[in-house]
Write a protein that binds this DNA or RNA. Structure first.
Lengths: 192, 192
DNA sequence: GTCTATACCTGGATAGAC
DNA sequence: GTCTATCCAGGTATAGAC
């Protein structure tokens, strides 16, 4: 409801700034500057800072779903779809190098702050998790599907953290290669 | 120099609080409360907040080195030593569940804030990295030693992030098992 | 819906007495 | 070495005019 233009611009700006600088470090003043509205106007659209965060998380969920839909349209084979996920880190490398994985770093911050929106943030991961699980099921790994999904998420997260910490693109490329090979072995019927 | 009692207590308290709540969220007031000194007294020991951070990082490096020394005394086989590292996540599970990996979350925050101490924080990882590299060399993996070290660090980081995000102890245990089996295969002369 | 003005608090940091 | 008092910037949030 009330899908106003300004409101959407606030969410969009907040989304960016939270990714770049973190939630706690993002202030109303900074967002207002970007959107070019006064701080006062702000409170017409959102009553608290946490409400903005929740709106941002919802938008990220929407974006995630549409990204997944694209992958599904581009590839019919589940293995190829999973590789789309695996390769995001290379596609977004310049940003990830400087600011980490948008989902992982947000969840880390929420965890640190014991923030009420912790669960909502985790929900972005859950979208990927369920979708990856479905793809692994299609590959015939019924029993281990969820475990495999978590394995892929976890592997990617580790690579994102270490690659951004050490600014190591080469390392990221190596690991992505390994993940793809691991996935190929899984597809040709090997055990994990 | 000036290894005063109060100074050390400040570092100790700051270390804890930064781990529990993050650097940005940790204020002088909170630290002063824990140490039971006035905020003013603070500035006799540290001129800026960043100086406290650097002192905390130095202390963590010292602690890291002494932890590694213990592992070396407890185990002579490199593979067993590496497993000590792999298993920290289970040993410290209650804390990691709530606050993540102390090193990874700090590095993530430094990256987000583009903080000057980014490099110093990364240095804690570097201690582990070099040590793991040495252990893999002892295992006869000269060429890939550093790559393998980064792989272990990265794997652990991913598990820490996902396990703490989903509060999933079972998942952490599964992954630790897999890492140990992976290491065993490596030891018996398989390729990665 | 958007603005200005402002209240109120917390944070880092300083000055100076003891 | 420790304290109190204080400054100032910046943060969230509110009130009320337009």
């Amino acid at each position: 409801m009330s899908a106003g233009k300004t409101r959407n611009e606030i969410i969009k700006a907040a989304d960016q700034l939270i990714y770049l600088n973190g939630y706690e470090h993002t202030s109303f003043a900074t967002i207002a500057n970007v959107v070019k509205i006064s701080r006062g106007n702000f409170y017409y659209h959102f009553k608290t800072k946490d409400q903005i965060l929740n709106a941002v998380i919802e938008q990220r969920k929407t974006n995630t779903r549409s990204m997944i839909r694209q992958w599904e349209q581009q590839h019919t084979k589940p293995a190829e779809r999973i590789k789309c996920y695996i390769k995001i880190i290379l596609q977004n490398w310049p940003k990830i190098k400087q600011h980490g994985c948008p989902v992982g770093t947000l969840c880390n911050e929420m965890t640190k702050l014991s923030h009420p929106s912790q669960k909502q943030a985790r929900g972005i991961f859950t979208i990927f998790r369920k979708w990856l699980r479905d793809q692994f099921r299609l590959l015939g790994h019924e029993e281990q599907a969820d475990q495999l999904a978590m394995h892929v998420l976890s592997w990617s997260q580790g690579v994102a953290t270490m690659a951004s910490t050490f600014k190591a693109q080469q390392f990221a490329e190596n690991e992505v290669d390994q993940m793809c090979r691991w996935l190929d072995e899984l597809t040709t019927g090997k055990s994990i």
